[in-house]
Amino acid sequence: MFGYVTCDKAELKMKDWERYNAYYCGVCKSIGARFGQIPRMILTFDAAFIAVLLAGLTDEEAAGGPSGSGGYSLRSERCIAHPLKEKLVVREEAVDYAADVMLLLAYYKMEDDRQDEHSLKAASAERYLRGAKSRIEKQRPGLGEVLAAQLTRQSALEAQKCASCDQAADPTGKIMEAVFCEGLKAVRGEPAGEQEVRRTDAQLRVLTQLGYQLGRWIYLIDAADDLGEDIAKGGYNPFKERFLYDPASETKEDFSKRVHDDAERILLSCLADMADCLDLLEIRRHTDIIKNVVQFGLLRQTDTVLEKLAGAAPHAANERKD
């Protein structure tokens, strides 16, 4: 479920591209500083979006979070991956929060891989991340509980070969919902005054729906992207069950072509809802980046995967930046 949430660089202003990267580097440095060097490998651009969106909900002066411990800073630094070139790095509460989310997700992914594939690499990575995971769960109990419960639900749905795309995508939706809502609480703290409480409640409702649809999209785009592979290996795939793949009467290419239009309708319905939610979100910073991701980046990823389903040459399919 990693790596699909990206911006569309061609449509982004240079300064916004730099800023987006500064958040990416910020999350990476935050992981490095608090949990050591190795977990930094798990980072994807998904984390940068979580950080930018949550940061966008606060003013720069308040970006240190309710505890005000970190405060906001933007600095030029070197790092292991780019030893020769200084990069801009953001530090603020939203960045630390996104780093925590990434670590928790990585931990559960490793746990899943270990159980599914009995992979030794996953087992040792899981052991390595376990300490960090319990520290984060202690600090952010709401998040940890939802994650563990929903991932268990997801395994159960997959084991029983759930034939509804919506049901299968529901746990990931609920996870992203919690990620954004807990995130808002983390960066804003308790709202003070009646008016603030009312506004925060409204924003939480918007974030709940926005996060839910983003989570659904992440799950479903991953499923659509892996469809060919899942058919070849005989693994579970919601599209396979929902649209009744029949190996006796059709090839996997024919099936992919057959589900193309439905997959497009399903994937874009998530994005359409997300875009409507975004219009109701009170964004104070980084508006252009956030809109770029929702309106261009996610659509670009969708079109790439749809092309793959339609049988176009699998060039650059699911291109990810490392």
Partner: peptide, 25 residues
Amino acid sequence: TIAQMGNRYRNVSQGQGYNYEDAFC
């Protein structure tokens, strides 16, 4: 309404300059 959600979203993206893959892109 449901069938058209995707088009509604695509139209907004296009209106704001989303480019479909062509030779130039």
